[in-house]
Amino acid sequence: MHVDEWLQSIPAIWVYALVGVVIGLESLGIPLPGEIVLVSSALLAAKGVVSPVMVGVCASVGAIVGDSIGYLIGKKGGKPLFDRLGRRFPKHFGPAHIARAETMFQRYGMWAVFFGRFVALLRILAGPLAGALRMPYWQFLVANVLGGIAWAGGTTAVVYHLGVVAEQWLKGFSWVGLVVAVLFGIGTTLWLKKRVAARAVAEEVSARSA
């Protein structure tokens, strides 16, 4: 079966459900590749398999609901919750990760929740940590909703248009276009993520030395 035919055979509802569930679980505090799922789904939208609007909506809803549940879990579990998670997932919830995230929250407050949506570490920790630190829920909710929509909608729109352009350039080689678009989209996302994370670390070091 040709790649285009195979892609067209994927039920759109499966893609939407996958986007919402994976991003929701990641936002709740479970280390999952939500960003990669979102980028891949946006590229499928560029191929005409699914609607880019529905991808953005499902991603936004998953992000907002997941973060809200994470907030409630963090508020109930408090700091001991992160001690347990640190022992189980040291690469994501180790003492250094938690300390860095706490510094960001204490320094930036609501902005840490908003911009944390664009950083892998804070995207996982934002909800539970905001709850554990007793951030007022209305502040968290405002930053959570705006950040979730900006991240999910913005990422979907950018990757979708990149995919459309790539498809036009490589129209005669549909499978090559798909592979190139996926790799380009994921590579660009990972590069931007590393740049933002490196900048956050640099600001933290600068603040400590000041």
Results as ranks from 00 to 15, higher is better:
M135D: 08
Y160T: 05
I124R: 00
I30F: 08
M110N: 14
A101Y: 04
L43C: 04
A166T: 07
Y137R: 03
L85Q: 06
A46P: 01
H97C: 09
L162E: 03
I69P: 01
K91C: 01
G29F: 02
G172Q: 05
A210N: 14
L183W: 15
F93E: 05
W191H: 11
E167Q: 15
R134E: 13
K193F: 11
V55F: 04
L121E: 10
V61N: 02
A112G: 10
G187M: 13
I186S: 14
A207W: 14
A42D: 09
F115Q: 06
L129I: 02
S206H: 14
I10V: 14
S27M: 00
Y160F: 11
V176N: 11
L190M: 15
A59K: 02
P136C: 09
W175S: 13
W191E: 13
T156H: 06
L28H: 00
P90M: 09
L32E: 00
A112T: 13
I149V: 15
L32K: 02
I13Y: 14
G172T: 06
L190W: 14
A152M: 10
F114I: 11
F184R: 05
P52C: 09
I36Q: 12
P128N: 12
H161C: 10
Q168D: 05
P90K: 04
I186N: 12
W6S: 13
T155Q: 15
G172R: 04
P11Y: 07
L125F: 07
L141S: 11
E204L: 12
G77Q: 02
Q139A: 12
D83Y: 08
Y16P: 01
G116K: 06
F115P: 10
V21Q: 02
S9D: 13
L38P: 01
K79W: 08
A152H: 08
R134N: 11
F89C: 12
A63E: 01
F93Y: 14
T103E: 14
W14H: 06
G187A: 15
P33I: 03
I149D: 09
L25P: 03
R88C: 10
V145C: 13
Y137I: 02
L44R: 00
A101E: 03
A45Q: 00
S174C: 10
G127I: 02
E204W: 07
G74C: 07
I23C: 00
W6I: 13
A126G: 05
L125P: 07
P80A: 02
Q8E: 00
